[in-house]
Structure formats: structure tokens, C-alpha cells
Design a protein around this nucleic acid. Sequence first.
DNA 1: TTTGACTTGACCTGTTTTTAGCAAATGTAA
DNA 2: TTACATTTGCTAAAAACAGGTCAAGTCAAA
Lengths: 116, 116
Amino acid sequence: MLKTGQVKKMASFGKFIKTEREKREWTQTEFGTKIGINTSAISRIENGSQKFSRSKLKELSSLFGMELQQITDLFFADKFAREAFKYKCSESVFAVAEDTANYYRNTKVKQGKLEL
Amino acid sequence: MLKTGQVKKMASFGKFIKTEREKREWTQTEFGTKIGINTSAISRIENGSQKFSRSKLKELSSLFGMELQQITDLFFADKFAREAFKYKCSESVFAVAEDTANYYRNTKVKQGKLEL
DNA sequence: TTTGACTTGACCTGTTTTTAGCAAATGTAA
DNA sequence: TTACATTTGCTAAAAACAGGTCAAGTCAAA
């Protein structure tokens, strides 16, 4: 089912961070120092009441020694899921999104209209 | 394939608005007046260089006489697709998002932890 | 009970992103 | 040319977001 490089099923981005941090036996404070965020923020991020900053994805991937692509996908999958939930999208929203994404891939890209 | 109430395949939210506006034979200015946005913004929205404001989805649904759910799904599907494209998510991101969304549905909701 | 790790609330601030108005420019059809 | 529709550059204002501080908690293990 999983293709190479594809992301394994994961609960949420916060849980992902927590799991990886604990694997490395870092406290929230240690991890926070490495990535440049204070302890309370780390706690909130892991528990889902604060978002991880998009601009720190690169640092996170090198800190965890993982592919940026994998981190990115996980990050956005979580972002989209939360948003869909928050704004009461129907279950089909991601299927529609995939169609729309294909539309953008097929038209915009070829025309060089990358300005989204 | 399409369930009742499900959104028909659509190119982009901008094109959707343009199509529906033209069906009703409204100029961008007329439409803008009805929804409360000026002409330039309508133009940019239809052409995809500006986002339609989330806070106006309700007005849009009544203006077009369509279900809010349908409009909402279309709006967010487009939003997600653009974002995924912009930040170079892999093609599997929406599949992952769907898993994550299920995770949130099964845990957060039951616990009343609706604060996303 | 002391200590370290973690959680949470309230509040504040700087930054980035996005919106949308105006005016000018560009179609476009009669 | 005239008239109307649409598009676009510039810009101020608004909204969203990230992260910080500080203080007050909980919790588990030594």
C-alpha cells in the first residue's frame, strides 16, 4: 500500500513530534533549544493547541534526520485535516482537493503560471 | 461515484465563481455589489491571484442558491490544493490528510476536545 | 517532599499574509 | 471613438499567525 518515500499513517503532527523527540530522549526544553522555540510552545505544539511553524520544517527535518518531503507532507496533511474539521467540510473534501490539485498540475504548471 | 450532495468535479474556485456569475449574466461589478467586494477583487478572485474571503461563503451560497456545504467543500478543496501545490507536497498528501482527519474524528470529537 | 518534566491559561507583540480600494490600463464590441 | 467589462500596479489596512513571558498548575519518580 505504501509507496517508497510515502509517509506512514500518523495520528497528528503534534504526536509525531512528541514521538520522535522521545525516541531521541530529548526533553521538551532540550528540543526547544535545538529548534529555537521555548518549552511552553513545544508543549502546546505536541498537544495540538499551537501550530508548528512552517518556516521551521527544514530545521525539523535535519534535526530528526528525515526527508523534508516527508515532514512537509505530514505537516500539511495535519493542517488540512484540522482546517477541514474546524470548518465542517464534508468527508469528500480531500477527494475534491485531489481533483483540484490535478487541475492545477495540468494547467497552471504547463503554462508557467506558478503564481498561486 | 458521486454521492448525494457531493460536489461535482470542478477546476478551481475562481472558475466556479466565474461560471456561476456568467450563468446569471452578472458583470463582475454587479456581482461585486451583491456580495460586497469591488470589481478588481472579483477579477483577481476569478483569475486566481486572490482568494475569496472565507467570511463571505454564506452570502455566496445564498446568492447562488446553493447549499453552503457544497460551497464550503469547494472553497476548502481549492484552498488545500493551492497550498499543497505551493509548498510542494507530494501527491499522497490528501490521502494522509484523510487519515489524519479520521483520527481527529475518532478521538478529539468523542472527548469533546473540539479546540483545534 | 523535593525535583524535574510537562501542561495550561492569560496576555502581549512583532511579523507575515492577504484583502480590497483606487486609478490607470487594457480589451472588446458596436 | 464611445462605452462597458475586465485586468493590473500600487498601497493602506486588516487579518492571521507565531512565538514569547510569566505564573500557576499537575504528575511521577527518587
